[in-house]
């Protein structure tokens, strides 16, 4: 499925230019972290790469046919979208969508519920849980299909330290079991902990794209330099 290539990708919403043109190649493995000021276009870029918003120009291609590639991706949204169903049914949902046998899907869902520490709440409606619990469900629901490519949009933005640690552990595990991860974050500490490469976005453009070590040791651009030293970048 890899490399994933974005070629001259642009997004407009009602004539307004949001991002692009963006040219980008993502290879298999690792965690690519998107950083950049608010409104830079991180969310838009993630959704565009995942193929859930219309591109006004350019394309995203994979080494496999588009349909196959699409089936092997998952997306975790910034504010978790919970189906009005039990925790277990939320977890089993993508499997059921893919035509998995119900018994097997439920069994796997139970395993994941245990893994994210929600066995006790398995049969409760997911919409009634806390923000951190919902985000863990959203992540587990994204991982349950063993995606080759996982997108996350600021997955820990509204979570406390404990929940953040849990999410990061799940992401590290997913990465080590074969998921390539692209995530945005506002948390520079998180970027340092997780990133294997960094994509710095500014005004809808890629300002810098480099290996994480290099990015943090010698920031490639002035904006990146200011951003990681904690200055405000506009």
């Amino acid at each position: 499925m890899f490399p994933m290539t974005a070629c001259d990708l642009s997004v407009k919403v009602r004539q307004k230019h949001i991002i692009g043109p963006i040219n980008l190649t993502i290879n298999e493995g690792g965690i690519t972290v998107l950083m950049g000021p608010n409104g830079a276009g991180k969310t838009t870029l993630l959704k565009a790469l995942h193929g859930i918003i219309r591109l006004s120009n350019g394309q995203v291609t994979f080494a496999t046919p588009a349909k196959t590639a699409q089936e092997q991706q998952s997306f975790v949204f910034q504010s978790p979208i919970m189906l009005r169903r039990s925790v277990l049914e939320n977890l089993a949902y993508p499997l059921m969508i893919n035509g998995q046998d119900k018994q097997i899907a439920m069994e796997l869902a139970r395993t994941w519920a245990a893994k994210i520490g929600l066995s006790a709440h398995m049969d409760r409606p997911a919409t009634f849980l806390s923000g951190g619990e919902k985000q863990k469900i959203a992540l587990a629901r994204a991982l349950i299909t063993s995606p080759k490519l996982l997108f996350l949009d600021e997955p820990t933005a509204s979570l406390d330290g404990a929940a953040t640690v849990e999410i990061e552990a799940l992401l590290n595990e997913a990465q080590s079991t074969g998921s390539t991860i692209i995530m945005s974050t506002h948390n520079i500490g998180q970027a340092r902990r997780m990133a294997s490469s960094v994509l710095f976005i500014k005004d809808g453009q890629i300002d810098a794209h480099s290996a994480a070590n290099a990015f943090f040791d010698t920031p490639p651009t002035q904006a990146a330099q200011k951003f990681i030293s904690g200055d405000i970048v506009l």
């Binding site: 995942h50 859930i52 991706q73 998952s74 949204f77 979208i81 189906l83 993508p94 969508i97």
Partner: peptide, 18 residues
């Protein structure tokens, strides 16, 4: 309900019928 679910269901490649 659809405006709540929209992004998720699109992302999961659900068919119209699903």
């Amino acid at each position: 309900l659809w405006s709540e679910y929209h992004d998720l269901l699109i992302s999961m490649n659900t068919s119209k019928w699903q």
